[in-house]
Each structure stands twice: as C-alpha cells, then as structure tokens.
C-alpha cells in the first residue's frame, strides 16, 4: 500500500486530485481510497486530502499520518504548516514551484521535486490549475500509477477539450520529471518552520491559544490575532504612497480588518490580508495595485 498526502488551499483542487488518483488506480485494477480532512476552512485556507492505493481493498479509516508521497499544490504552504510531518524515511515530496525548493522551510530532510505546475497550467489553461501537471509528475516518479490512467481519469471527469488540455498538462508534468537534468533535491531541515509572521499575542487565559482547554469553551477576545491568514494570499495589495491620500475607503471595505490609515496613508497588514483585492477595486484614485505573490 502506498499512502499519499496532498496539501493545497481551499478551492485549489487537492480533494479532486486525490479523487482522480483513485479513479486512475481503479482503472488499472487496483483499489484505493481518497478523502479530505473535513473542517470549517474556507477558500484559500490550507486543506489536506489523503490517498491510499493498494492491490487489495483498503480497509483502514484514518488520515494518512506516514505518507510515502507528499504532494504540495502551493509553494507557500511549507511556510504555514508542517507539510513534511510524518514523511517516511524513503518518502518523496512534490511541490509546485518554478524555483529550486532549497529556499523553502522544511521540517525534515527529504528528496524534493520542484514541478513548475503553475507555469504549465498557465501555458495550457491560462489559469493556475495545477492538478494535472502535479499528478503527471507523480506518475513519472512512482511506478504505482501510469500517466495514461491519470490522463483517462481527467478525460472522464472533464469530457471534451478541457479533458484533453488536462491530459496535455499531465504529460508536461510527466515529461518534466523525466528530463535528464531534473533530479530530486535533497533539502535539509530548516531550524524551524516559519510562520508567515509574528502574530500579535492574544489576551492570555480563557482558552487562548497555548492555554489548556476551557471547560465551557469560553474564549478570550481577539485570539484570532494569533492565527495569521496572510498565507492564504495569492496576490498582495501594494499601496502607492504618492497617490494614496488616506481617504480610508479601502479600510471601510476590507473584510479582514487588515487596513489602517496612518498619517494619511493606507497601511496593509500582510500578516492577515488574504489578498481579495477589494481595496484595489474600490480605491477611487487607483492607488492600490495587486501584485502576484509569486512575482
């Protein structure tokens, strides 16, 4: 049995990737299971999906704690959560990144393949649909599943030209891994996994983070300040100081209370800003531009 854990962000397709892997394996006469980690999480928040593939029916019903493969659909995730948690000693990591992975924060030593899945997706779809390239790459790395089965699974899910595009992107991910100069990079453990920033300390007591469970689940105010949501962001608002006159329109409309006006200037708190882009749209002077986090 092989066990796979897929890390993504809400809305990114981790659950779909897991599901399609099982469809692909089943078409090859194998058995498997795919399921998400359920939670109240929202679009952009870190999510996980789990896959087990085996020659016989999979009976265990718990999450994958000791993965053979970790598939990371977003290169910012290692900064937010411990994506390598429980990885087997001979485990392999795939991450969507056009850049070498050595610069990322890791919690363990592991061989890491960087797959330019976003770049492939932009070329094929014009949108960052990273799943097919990542699963194509996985097929090239593991002998457990063939590229053809993965392409078929996409084709069945998305009949017609969209399926063909998915098949092409899967092929490109597969081909990338087979290039002679593409080898897994052995990353070494970072001294610590970084958070996206140092969050404000919440009021102590009453079941605040790091405190014992409160018997009646009573919570102190504003403890969410210890939960930075900046990592959910795909694009960041950049305020042009020369244009901004501190009118505060953006502050009024910020769903994440992440904008303030200080000395007639809009200040973004990137620790929490989720990058929705509302501020950029509502600014009557065009002082806020959205910049890609990848850029």
């Amino acid at each position: 049995m092989i066990e796979i854990r897929i890390h993504g962000r809400g809305g990114q397709g981790a659950v779909l990737a897991a599901e399609l892997l099982v469809h692909a394996a089943f078409a090859e006469g194998k058995f498997g299971q795919a399921f998400p980690a359920f939670g109240g999480e929202r679009r952009g928040a870190p999510v996980q999906a789990f896959v087990r593939l085996d020659k016989s029916p999979v009976r265990v019903r718990y999450r994958v704690y000791r993965p053979d493969y970790v598939v990371i659909l977003d290169r910012t995730l290692p900064d937010m959560i411990d994506v390598l948690d429980g990885l087997r000693p001979d485990g392999v990591v795939l991450i969507d990144s056009a850049r070498p992975p050595a610069t990322l924060s890791w919690s363990a030593d592991a061989p890491v393949y960087a797959i330019p899945a976003t770049a492939i997706a932009m070329e094929v779809f014009g949108q960052p649909l990273v799943n097919p390239a990542m699963l194509g790459a996985l097929a090239a790395i593991t002998s457990e599943i063939s590229l053809l089965s993965i392409q078929d699974a996409f084709q069945r899910r998305f009949p017609g030209s969209l399926g063909e595009k998915n098949g092409l992107a899967a092929q490109m991910g597969y081909d990338h891994v087979l290039k002679p100069d593409v080898l897994p990079v052995r990353v070494t453990r970072s001294p610590h996994v970084r958070g996206v920033g140092q969050a404000s300390a919440p009021d102590a007591g009453l079941g605040a983070p790091g405190h014992p469970l409160h018997f009646g689940l009573v919570v102190a105010p504003r403890t969410s300040l210890a939960y930075p949501t900046g990592g959910w962001r795909y694009a960041r608002p950049a305020v042009d100081a020369d244009i901004c006159n501190g009118c505060g329109l953006c502050v009024a409309f910020c769903p994440d209370s992440s904008l303030t006006i200080v000395e007639k200037q809009a200040i973004v708190d990137y620790m929490y800003c989720k990058g929705c882009g509302i501020c950029s749209k509502v600014c009557s002077r065009g002082a806020i531009a959205m910049m890609s986090e990848e850029g």
């Binding site: 109240g40 009453l206 009646g216 009573v218 105010p221």
Partner: peptide, 14 residues
C-alpha cells in the same frame, strides 16, 4: 464567566 463588554469573552465555539 458571563457576557459583559467590560470583559469580553466568546461563548459557543466549535
């Protein structure tokens, strides 16, 4: 513990 603006607290989390 009880609801009061003097010492805000939150009841009924998940």
């Amino acid at each position: 513990h009880y609801l009061t603006p003097e010492r805000p607290s939150v009841f009924g989390s998940y």
